[in-house]
């Protein structure tokens, strides 16, 4: 209990530190570009695969539920609204947490136990500025783009599921999507992506950065695991509150 509270206080201090460095200094450009490519481009394949199945699933599963009261023609609307507003941003963030976040935590923890962070300090390079800030910026900038990409792929998959597999009318599906999904909905999804991306990044960086040298290789594994689990839970909970604020 005491340990958990101490960890929480450490986390809050880390957030303060990260925010200050993130917004007062320009992050080193080479690290930022590498991280951005890794976070964005590197996640595309996984995200594409997952979003295709999620989109197909959204169609097929809600078809079963709507059929019970004869509402299957509303599928397009549900798939579009549910997908763009909720499912795809959360999926992009959770996938990002499982892949990018774990990578961040593992790499930072590895640097910590191999004393690379101390080496930076000795060279009078601020490790938070040099290592953490570019990673935070990279994930924060990459996630909204991934969300937008997931929206496109997911909607296409939902369309494919609804029209080709379930035999719904393509025109009505498209017109429902056009009617129900406004630019504001897409923007909200991207905004959620921005917030969740920053959260995932800051949680992963915290877990990686706060590993102690004496934890050794086991500490790296624990930090990675904590980064994934805390990141995913945080995304889902924060998503609820964001939706509540925006749509409630």
């Amino acid at each position: 209990m005491v340990a958990a509270i101490r960890k929480l206080i450490e986390f809050v201090r880390f957030i303060g530190l990260a925010l200050r460095i993130q917004f007062t200094k320009i992050p080193p450009r080479d690290v930022l570009v590498t991280q951005l490519v890794d976070a964005g481009w590197g996640s595309l394949a996984l995200l594409t695969m997952l979003t295709i199945f999620a989109g197909l699933n959204l169609s097929v599963q809600s078809y079963g539920s709507f059929e019970r009261f004869g509402g299957q023609d509303l599928l397009g609307m549900f798939a579009a609204v549910g997908g763009v507003r909720e499912l795809y941003p959360v999926m992009a963030a959770v996938v990002c947490g499982a892949r990018i976040g774990a990578n961040l935590a593992a790499s930072l923890a590895n640097m910590r136990i191999s004393e690379q962070i101390e080496a930076l300090e000795v060279m009078a390079v601020d490790p938070v500025h040099y290592l953490v800030a570019p990673r935070l910026w990279a994930v924060t900038l990459a996630l909204p783009l991934l969300c937008g990409y997931a929206d496109v792929v997911g909607l296409a998959a939902s369309y494919a599921g609804a029209v080709w597999q379930l035999g719904l009318d393509p025109g009505s599906f498209i017109s429902q999507v056009q009617e129900q999904v406004s630019l504001a909905d897409i923007g909200t999804g991207l905004f959620k992506g921005l917030i969740m991306g920053w959260l995932v990044a800051v949680i992963s960086c915290f877990h990686g950065y706060s590993v102690a040298k004496r934890d050794g290789a086991e500490g790296v594994g624990i930090a990675t695991n904590l980064a994934i689990v805390h990141g995913a839970v945080m995304c889902i909970v924060v998503n609820l509150f964001l939706s509540w604020l925006i749509y409630g």
């Binding site: 774990a102 790296v220 594994g221 994934i228």
Partner: peptide, 19 residues
Amino acid sequence: KGAADVGKAANDTVVSTIV
């Protein structure tokens, strides 16, 4: 072989199971 591979195995497990 090493400790880093253990972390990679744990991470790969999560990603491939989600898929």
